[in-house]
Design a protein around this nucleic acid. Structure first.
Lengths: 252, 252
DNA sequence: GCTTGTGAAACCGTTCACAGCG
DNA sequence: CGCTGTGAACGGTTTCACAAGC
């Protein structure tokens, strides 16, 4: 079993299967079709899903790319391109069937199965994450909370008892966790990351302001609050700079 | 020098001024030069800054693009391209002066001035944000915490007294806040956003799982936990799909 | 020598515009 | 007719490769 497999070129176009495939033996074919969805599209699918989830309440059975685009804050060409990567599930002249689309996007994102998540670090942020409703509501299960601080072990957070980081491998194994969330200080992040990977976690969501090294086959996404603020700072600064330039331009 | 198109990558902003490339000395020229740094580069500058901040401790006075690239988790060509947007501050055959680079990046990002931030919503996440050290340590000041829940008003969080959302405009004005952080439930986000904009906030960091509409000139960045998890879910799903495909390939 | 700075090429994502089809 | 699906054009980003210069 080779583990290295990134960025596979769309070499083999499998036969366009019939539209009804759900979770049958068409699994492999579905996986093959799913193979080369651009990352940028993948990142928008959850947004579409959220927008779609509010549509049935308003009595909509179908939705046009135009309407969905408005609800998702993008343009309609993008919606159509993105959805075309999942296959042709729209009806020309009509739009997309809402339920159908929800099902296909959910399938594509792998949300039909329940993923287990282990959260490392139960400080301010770890607490907030453990209590975050979006975890449970979108089918993610918290397999465990671990922390390096002995004083925190045994504490109950969001109904879960905090365990020692020494138990990490056991928590991952017993809870079947494949996703790890790092909510530790930056200094501990790489070490925690290594432990997560060693325990078998293959996807990591990193909240620590640190660059993580991981082996091939492990996906990392980062969320960095200070970075976001600094980017906004740049734009604020630029805006005030432009104001100066415009004032000088007007004065001359 | 080259005259780029005035296409500043962001999502929303108007600023319909002509190219007007001034090579004058001083603030206006600096602002003009700063005008067209690609968004992708801007997003990496904070990462470089963080990597650089740990270098003096190890006795480094200069740093090569190669070393900085390693510390930042990117490649050296990218580092050089990015830094070239700030001007030519490196020395061929030697590298970049660390202090110099920190100063130039900080200037570019507007981190030489202290920005004030107002946080709306003091739930789990709001608490975590208020207590987050990265705010203060990178020169951001919390101008105030506001919440719509009457039961929370008066509560002290991270040394700051929570005020009513009715006071938002006053908090923004008195605190000189130009950045707003939305940490409310999704349903309240657009309303809060409108209030922030009305109060004069021109940059928003949105943690609520909602698409925000803002007028031109206001920058929005979003941080979406559920979305990040769903993207990881996709990759987990894809990996297991590939495992299935490979197993079937081996079996046939 | 070594490392920066930068055109040029390759790549990727977005937008346009219209053919195709219900 | 209306809307999807998509080839083609476009624009931004990354990577390459090497000339410039300490």
């Amino acid at each position: 079993m080779r583990s290295r497999r990134r960025n596979v070129g769309g070499d083999n176009r499998k036969t366009r299967q019939e539209p009804f495939v759900t979770e049958q033996v068409g699994y492999a074919a579905a996986a093959a079709r799913r193979r080369d969805i651009p990352e940028a599209s993948v990142a928008r699918l959850p947004v579409y899903l959220r927008a779609l989830s509010r549509l049935p309440e308003t009595g909509h059975v179908t939705v046009s790319s135009e309407d969905l685009a408005r609800a998702a804050g993008v343009n309609s060409a993008k919606v159509r391109k993105d959805l075309s990567h999942l296959g042709s599930y729209g009806t020309r002249g009509v739009g997309y069937d809402v339920d159908d689309l929800v099902r296909h996007i959910s399938n594509t994102l792998g949300l039909t199965q329940r993923w287990s998540v282990v959260i490392v670090g139960v400080g301010n942020l770890g607490h907030a994450l453990a209590g975050y409703g979006g975890f449970a509501s979108r089918g993610f299960r918290i397999a465990g909370l671990v922390d390096a601080d002995a004083a925190r072990i045994g504490e109950r957070v969001a109904g879960i008892t905090v365990q020692s980081i020494a138990e990490l491998a056991a928590v991952v194994r017993d809870g079947g966790a494949s996703i790890g969330v790092i909510a530790t200080p930056a200094g501990a992040a790489q070490d925690v990351c290594d432990q997560l990977v060693a325990a078998g976690v293959t996807s990591i969501l990193n909240f620590a302001p640190a660059v993580l090294q991981v082996p091939d086959g492990v996906d990392v996404r980062k969320v960095d609050l200070a970075l976001e603020l600094q980017i906004l700072s740049f734009h604020e600064h630029r805006k005030s700079g432009i104001a100066v330039v415009e004032a000088e331009g007007a004065a001359s």
